[in-house]
């Protein structure tokens, strides 16, 4: 049935991540939390991180947003796990554009992800 949807709009990767997000909610040891929103789209994203010894050991999220937002959040959580926590405050997620990919009209999804992760860099839980 997926072929009925414009493949340029929803890649197989987006569909897979949207259908089965595995990192919902705060990991059991989450100690950081940050939220960002895109009022124009009515979407928001809350990121939860577990940081131990300056490394992100687990990440999770809650979101209300379009399929790309949910897929991007899931992918960002996967990529964040094992990353250097000192880089969170300047977090950049350019990789999402190619990895999902994000269509041109959805490039703001990347900003939502970056804002939520940066907020979580300092947000104690």
């Amino acid at each position: 049935m997926d072929e009925l949807h414009d493949p340029a709009r929803y890649s197989p990767r987006v569909l897979e991540l949207f259908d089965r997000p595995a990192r919902l909610g705060p990991p059991p040891g989450a100690n950081r939390e940050g939220q960002a929103e895109n009022r124009a789209r009515g979407s928001w994203l809350r990121m939860y991180l577990q940081v131990e010894a300056e490394r992100v050991v687990a990440a999770g999220f809650h979101a209300r947003g379009c399929p790309h937002t949910i897929a991007a959040a899931e992918l960002a959580c996967e990529a964040l796990t094992g990353s250097d926590a000192s880089e969170l405050a300047e977090y950049r997620a350019e990789f999402l554009e190619a990895a999902l990919p994000l269509p041109p009209e959805k490039l703001d999804v990347r900003l939502l992800i970056e804002d939520a992760v940066r907020a979580a860099a300092h947000g104690r839980r």
Partner: peptide, 16 residues
Amino acid sequence: EGVDGEALQLALRDIA
């Protein structure tokens, strides 16, 4: 209430 319209439509893509 409380969900995104595009996400809802894609989630229900077995319903045209």
